[in-house]
């Protein structure tokens, strides 16, 4: 039964039926089925507060000259915010591993797309620059 290692849907779903085995420690919410994970209120508010704080931070930092580090700092902060949203607001933390895997997987493809494309554009850019320069000289004549 290799299916079980990929996901556990091959077993049919009624095994976990409507009675809901409480694995995620949400036993204090009676009547809530096992597939529904309830995010505690304090987490939601704490995440929100952190998001606002990080927004303030990134705005404040934008006034400071950080040179080339700037883009990495602002993208770093954005990524922390994105992770907070994904992990808590989007319940990734308690989601099926498959769904998390799918998301990470898509990011790999985005990286591949942007990475290879950027690599190639940077490689052939000198040709374009040289060409533009020659055209400029031609016009000047």
């Amino acid at each position: 039964m290799t299916a079980a290692t990929i996901d556990h849907t091959g077993h049919g779903h009624d095994a976990h039926g409507h009675d809901g085995h409480a694995h995620h420690g949400h036993g204090h919410y009676p009547g809530v089925p096992s597939y529904s994970h309830i995010m505690p209120l304090w987490i939601l508010f704490a995440v929100f507060a952190s998001l606002i704080a990080l927004t303030a931070l990134t705005v404040a930092l934008s006034g400071v000259a950080l040179g080339t580090a700037e883009i990495f700092v602002s993208m770093g902060i954005a990524t922390i915010k994105a992770l907070l949203v994904a992990v808590y607001f989007m319940h990734m933390r308690h989601d099926k591993p498959l769904n998390v895997l799918i998301c990470t997987f898509s990011l790999v493809f985005v990286a591949l797309f942007i990475g290879l494309l950027l690599f190639d554009s940077m490689e052939y850019y000198p040709n374009i620059a040289a060409r533009t320069y020659v055209e400029m000289l031609d016009k000047a004549k």
């Binding site: 976990h16 597939y35 529904s36 498959l98 799918i102």
Partner: peptide, 11 residues
């Protein structure tokens, strides 16, 4: 089951 329906929708 509702669970199967939910899992499908979520995926």
């Amino acid at each position: 089951s509702y669970e199967q329906q939910f899992d499908a929708g979520k995926l």
